[in-house]
Computed example of a mutant assay.
Amino acid sequence: MKKIAIIGGGIIGMTLANYLDREQFEITVFDSGKNQATGASAGIISPWLSKRRNKKWYALARDGASFFEQLVTDFNLHESIYEKCGSLFLRSSKALQELEQLALERRKTAPEIGEIRRLRPEETEKKLPLLKAAESLYISGGARLDGKAYLEHLRARAEAKGIHIIKTEARVRRRRHDWEVASTQESLFVDELVLTPGPALKSLLEQLGYSAAVSPQKGQLLSFDTSFETGEWPVAFLDGEADLIPFQEGRLLLGATHENEAAWDLSPTQEAFEQLTKGVQPFLKEDFFTKTAYNYRVGTRAYTPDFAPFFGPIEGEAGLIVASGLGSSGLTTGPYIAYLLAQYLNSTQRQWEMGIYTKDLKNYIKAKNASK
């Protein structure tokens, strides 16, 4: 049986661990939990109306959203973790018309979008009673995912299957025929090494003689506990920085910030509160955010110069696989990336052809020694 180590127990690493073939692999996950984006996240699974021009990213996000139907079945995800609730888009009349046409066009290749309907002001208010009466666009296929709850659920499943999880940082070293993974608790020699540690990939690859075009980005969300009956509310894309994400039992999330300069700093800030609540206030009947108890969720995402993820085996390095750069769409793309990696690793005849979803790794990872 081969030994495999995964460094990084976020949305890719923990999903991958659960999809790997236990008859082929003895699996160990190293995860310190520090700065983890997924553990602090909750977000919207509704990528279809994005106007990003990157066609590879859209293909990945579209298929990632579609993959949730299988993910829910495979991992028995409860509605407190993932729920299809629909998405509302609040924009000007002209912008809504453009979005409606985009939705109709994209539904041809993404039937998961579901129903597409322009809502009158009173219909918008009925769908999400916090909002002022205003025109909106509704699509029924939108969903919400609680990243923290998702990880807790998958970690419990992994441990129940005998997957070894080591809650500490790790260092890596290339040996002649395998890889050494060392932590303060123990050292392992493994046949396969998968690096999925978000922006920390940069420092891990430096240990192996590579540079990586990936940087940390701080993200802050606000979580409010309310007395509202939020269970059937859709998520809402508001015209600005913040999106409104209702969950079960009165919980409302607002987020998230994108702070490149703050990077690894996990300190919650008043500036984030003001930025997020100020952006959403024009859409609300009343400013309840300043009167309601709340908590911060703070994590560090990985992003690349072109704001696109990369993943796959590194050419010339037998048994070395990487994935990073998910940015703020990690909840949508991460599980599907993990599934694709698992399919590759589980296969007896490995072939990696993912040009539809990502650029060649050479665009992001380079050997520091030019002769390598």
Rank of each mutant, 00 (worst) to 15 (best):
T226G: 08
H177C: 11
E241I: 11
V172L: 12
T184M: 15
W264S: 07
F237N: 14
A272N: 05
T226N: 09
S187F: 01
A160K: 02
E180W: 05
A272E: 02
V172Y: 03
L276Y: 01
I165G: 05
F283S: 06
E274R: 12
K202C: 04
S227L: 10
H258T: 01
A158R: 04
T226W: 02
T168I: 11
A272L: 07
F189L: 15
R171Q: 10
G219S: 12
L253P: 12
L276K: 06
E249G: 08
K161C: 00
V172I: 14
E232M: 09
A200H: 03
E180K: 11
L238S: 03
E249M: 09
R173Y: 12
P199D: 08
T257E: 06
Q207W: 02
E271Q: 15
A156I: 01
L208K: 14
G250Q: 00
A256Q: 11
P246K: 13
L154G: 00
L154P: 02
S267Y: 01
P199R: 04
K161N: 01
I165A: 00
W233I: 05
S211W: 13
K218M: 06
T277I: 01
D239T: 11
D243G: 10
K167M: 14
S215T: 07
G279W: 00
S183G: 14
H177S: 15
E229R: 15
T230R: 03
E159S: 13
I163H: 06
V214R: 00
A272S: 12
G240A: 11
T196P: 04
G255M: 14
D225A: 12
F247N: 03
T196H: 02
E249V: 05
T196W: 05
V190C: 02
E206M: 05
E180H: 00
L253S: 07
L244G: 06
Y210W: 07
A160H: 09
E159T: 15
I166H: 05
S211V: 10
E206L: 14
L252M: 10
A236D: 12
H177D: 13
L222G: 03
G240M: 06
F273H: 03
W264E: 06
P246G: 00
K167C: 09
P234L: 08
R173I: 07
